[in-house]
Design a protein around this nucleic acid. Structure first.
Lengths: 149, 149
DNA sequence: GTTGAAAAAATATTGAG
DNA sequence: CTCAATATTTTTTCAAC
């Protein structure tokens, strides 16, 4: 799908605030709200917009600790490992990477005790696990929900 | 702020789809939409809900490459480095971490050439830069926008 | 805290340029 | 692709329990 400047303007607004009324988007990009409606529908259908999500403060819902985890997986066991990782509560992202680690995880836990349990009881016990390194996130300086479009 | 099961149910729904009409949330949790409206407002005011964001497919807007970057910063230069990182286009997350790296970045770039430029021309040139390691993300197996609440 | 009902506003749809 | 007008739905407010 080809995106023009109007589409990009709409994407910028919806990335910033997904509940901006179409009427206000229309005002801001100087088009009718019917056009905005039409374009947003097409952006959704084309998969450019993958969804709309409320961002919840992890601390306020009991997740005081977050970490990035590098993972080495035994050769030939990759599929089993990935399948298992998807099911583990607290594992929020699973990326396949080049370099020192085969897989990088983003995990959330209640506190450092819970993180230890997650690492020792769940991740280190899974099929195909070789070794891991945990980088505890002491703080997030910057986290932009928007991509520059 | 104390969250009860009703709040959690609302959060689950809005994390999944931030544009679910209050009337439908009300149906699903068996309350009036006025109550949902009231609760969502309180969750926003308390900072539990930090915002609503459209999720855009990076590939569809020209970001074919993503990476996790581990960064070492010279002692005493941390603030300068963090300030600079915030301004660099393509740097989407900046986390302070324990372990091998002081800072972990999540970056997006058009392609591997653009990633090289980002690393060599922007990040390696910034004040306080000591060394870095780039973990190119070959694929994301799993990425859940929701926290289990 | 919750509700139902009314008022205000937004979204979805239609038909036509 | 865009628009104006209309129909439908939702959000918002508020008096009352």
């Amino acid at each position: 799908m080809e995106l023009d400047e109007t589409d990009r303007a709409i994407l910028r607004i919806l990335q910033e605030d997904a509940r901006t009324p179409f009427s206000e988007i229309a005002r801001r990009i100087d088009m009718s709200s019917a056009t905005v409606h039409d374009r947003v529908g097409r952006l959704e259908d084309a998969g450019v917009i993958q969804g709309y999500h409320a961002k919840v403060d992890p601390r306020k819902v009991g997740y005081g600790t977050s970490a990035l985890v590098g993972l080495r997986v035994e050769q030939g066991r990759e599929e089993n490992a990935l399948e298992r990782l998807r099911e583990i509560d607290g594992v929020k992202e699973v990326h396949l990477t080049t370099g020192e680690w085969d897989v990088m995880l983003r995990v959330y836990a209640e506190d450092t005790d819970a993180l230890r349990d997650l690492m020792f009881d769940e991740i280190a016990e899974m099929e195909g696990f070789a070794r891991s390194q945990t980088m505890v996130i002491l703080g997030t300086d910057f986290e932009d929900p928007s991509l520059p479009v």
